[in-house]
């Protein structure tokens, strides 16, 4: 129950993917790399996880094309509107997905099929970016505090 009760420790990645084998492989790989992973089979499941107060998500790695009430773009837009601070990586084969992802929600995009290691590298890059943003904001606040 660590994902529900304990938000300290490793970063938590929410993997949203309707193809069970793809979800299993990338989730196992991320766990092997030390991430805490929560699996969602579609955007509706992802929303249930994201709306749970006791679960802190750092990164959402989502497929673009999924069945259900919304696709990966819709999920990314919802996150941008409701959960600031969560990084989003979209994966898909939709033509023009990369530019669409950036326009819609500043999400980063990985073309399918992707290498698992590429996902890990992208998550690490986003974490570094988040850290540098945090440091800049700390630096920016400090002079005003005088």
């Amino acid at each position: 129950m660590s994902s529900l009760a304990d938000n300290s420790g490793p970063e938590t990645v929410l993997v949203v993917e309707d193809e069970v084998f793809v979800r299993m492989v990338i989730s196992d790989y991320l766990r092997g790399c030390g991430y805490k992973v929560i699996e969602a089979a579609d955007a509706d499941e992802a929303l249930m996880v994201l709306q749970h107060d006791g679960i802190q998500i750092h990164v959402v790695f989502s497929d673009v094309e999924m069945p259900g009430s919304m696709d990966g773009f819709g999920l990314a837009k919802w996150i941008r509107a409701n959960r600031l601070g969560i990084d989003i990586i979209l994966a898909g084969t939709v033509p023009g997905a990369a530019s669409a992802a950036e326009k819609l929600c500043e999400a980063t995009h990985l073309p399918k099929p992707y290498e698992s290691q590429a996902v890990v590298e992208r998550i690490g890059w986003l974490k570094a970016l988040r850290s540098s943003r945090f440091e800049r904001s700390e630096t920016a606040v400090e002079p005003g505090a005088k």
């Binding site: 660590s2 529900l4 929560i38 089979a41």
Partner: peptide, 14 residues
């Protein structure tokens, strides 16, 4: 039910 699945899977992994 994703939250039920998550709790059970987490417990078993622990």
């Amino acid at each position: 039910e994703v939250l039920v699945r998550l709790m059970l899977a987490d417990e078993l992994r622990e």
